[in-house]
């Protein structure tokens, strides 16, 4: 999947990846790639500014801790982030329902 198509959804993808977990940057990247079957082809460096943006919005918090002998910044969702994820999931469901109605097999566009 192209990076430009993903950028608009990166915040939601990161929130979903952190749902119920506390992860460091590369673990988040690995989880994103794993869940997408390797289809998410985004420069990994763009994840870090996005995480800072989410932190600025109060959706995630971060802490430095030593993991495996290396100092790592780990991220987790805040209650506000949990609500934002819920809203993102609802918005996505509505969006896909609408688009699927048009582009999917049963719509009037498909029959023309």
């Amino acid at each position: 999947m192209k990076p430009d198509a993903l950028r608009g959804h990166l915040d939601a993808l990161l929130l979903a990846t952190l749902d119920g977990k506390q992860l460091h940057g590369y673990a988040i990247i690995e989880a994103l790639q794993q869940h997408s079957g390797g289809a998410l082809d985004l420069p990994t460096g763009t994840v870090y500014p996005a995480l800072r943006r989410l932190e600025r919005a109060g959706h995630v918090t971060s802490d430095w801790s030593t993991v495996g002998g290396r100092k790592r910044r780990t991220y987790k969702l805040t209650p506000t982030g949990q609500k934002a994820l819920h809203a993102e999931r609802n918005a996505w469901r509505e969006f896909t329902t609408v688009i699927d109605g048009v582009l999917g097999g049963g719509g009037k566009w498909a029959q023309t």
Binding site: H24, G25, Y26, T44, G45, Y48, K71, R73
Partner: peptide, 9 residues
């Protein structure tokens, strides 16, 4: 964080 990520990768 960048260096950590690159070493992890």
């Amino acid at each position: 964080e960048t260096r950590d990520s690159l070493e992890d990768a």
